[in-house]
């Protein structure tokens, strides 16, 4: 008998009658004309799904079907059942096969839920280390791939291993300071490792440095505000931070009411201005908050004009 991981060979299936699609309909939704290979494969697949044969050749068939139609999740589910039945002591090889499929299908997400099912159900002896190479490789190639990040978060929690995350995220933020996925993962990390006050202060300094590098970056500003809200809720954003944000809008006089976009100077960061506006609003410096929102509506972020005007009405309420 041939092995689960051998090449797919049509001759192994000579005894199987491919099942046609039967919907009991004559309608156009089901009239088919597609490539011979695909037709043959899917016919076989339907036959196997119906007989539920859990054998090496069934496993080879799923590999072939997945290579042709990687998003066909029923084939993945079937393969999972086969692995559980006949190959659960060969996880190394399964992951090797899966890594290859992963590299060939970066946008597919069945891969990651399949990986999760393997790890969760069969991977008692595994560690995060086994997952790192493929995750790192995929995120190196597509640094904002949502499914890889989601899986990474799941895996880190599953293995309770946070030791690689901060240096990994550092590297990605160094490479692209606008990478919102990396900033989000950083917050996920911070919230899960219960950092002490000193670590949070260092983290605030780190974030400010990144903002100074690129002041017009919503991700780093959100992260900074998130740090304060989550770890220093009682301090608020006062004092030093107001000065920090003020540094990016030097040229703007918030004590004066703006009447036209033309009269307003260039500033380094509209997010700094947003931040200041909401701080002033909280502190009761309503005129300054209003002026700031007006400037956003007029010049620095006009596409959200109605939002900024709404913020002004909340001040007047």
């Amino acid at each position: 008998m041939t092995d689960c991981y051998d090449e797919f060979n049509l001759e192994d299936y000579a005894d199987v009658e491919p099942l046609p699609i039967v919907t009991g309909l004559k309608d156009e939704l089901c009239q088919i004309m597609y490539s011979e290979e695909y037709k043959q494969l899917m016919g076989l697949m339907r036959a196997f799904l119906s007989s539920n044969e859990l054998t090496p050749r069934a496993m080879r068939l799923t590999a072939r079907v997945i290579a042709v139609a990687p998003a066909f999740y029923t084939a993945w589910n079937y393969r999972f059942n086969i692995v559980v039945a006949i190959a659960k002591d060969r996880l190394d090889q399964e992951f090797q096969w899966l890594d290859e499929v992963t590299l060939n299908n970066p946008k597919n997400y069945q891969i990651w839920s399949y990986r999760q099912a393997l790890v969760e159900n069969l991977g008692q002896d595994l560690t995060l280390r086994g997952d790192l190479p493929i995750m790192d490789m995929m995120l190196d190639d597509d640094t904002k791939n949502y499914h890889v990040w989601s899986y990474r978060k799941w895996a880190v929690l599953h293995f309770k291993d946070f030791t690689h995350e901060l240096s990994f995220v550092d590297k990605l933020i160094d490479r692209d300071v606008y990478n919102n996925s990396a900033w989000n993962h950083r917050m996920f990390y911070m919230k899960n490792v219960s950092p002490d006050d000193r670590t949070i202060d260092e983290e605030i300094t780190y974030t400010k440095n990144k903002i100074e590098l690129v002041p017009q970056n919503i991700s780093s500003w959100n992260y900074l505000r998130g740090l304060y809200d989550h770890f220093k809720p009682e301090t608020g954003h006062k004092g030093e931070l107001l000065k920090f944000a003020g540094g990016f809008i030097d040229a703007l006089d918030l004590n004066a009411t703006a009447d036209s976009a033309e009269s307003l100077p260039e500033i380094e960061s509209s997010y700094a201005l947003e931040f200041l506006a909401s701080e002033y609003a909280t502190e009761g410096q309503l005129q300054r908050a209003k002026n700031a929102y007006q400037c956003l509506a007029l010049k620095y972020d006009p596409i959200r004009g109605s939002f900024w005007n709404y913020k002004i009405t909340t001040l007047e309420a």
């Binding site: 949502y146 990040w149 989601s150 978060k153 919102n180 989000n184 919230k191 959100n222 809200d229």
Partner: peptide, 12 residues
């Protein structure tokens, strides 16, 4: 924390 929703708790 940023005002959005993720696919699971903590996801972007």
């Amino acid at each position: 924390f940023d005002g959005g929703f993720g696919l699971s708790p903590g996801a972007e």
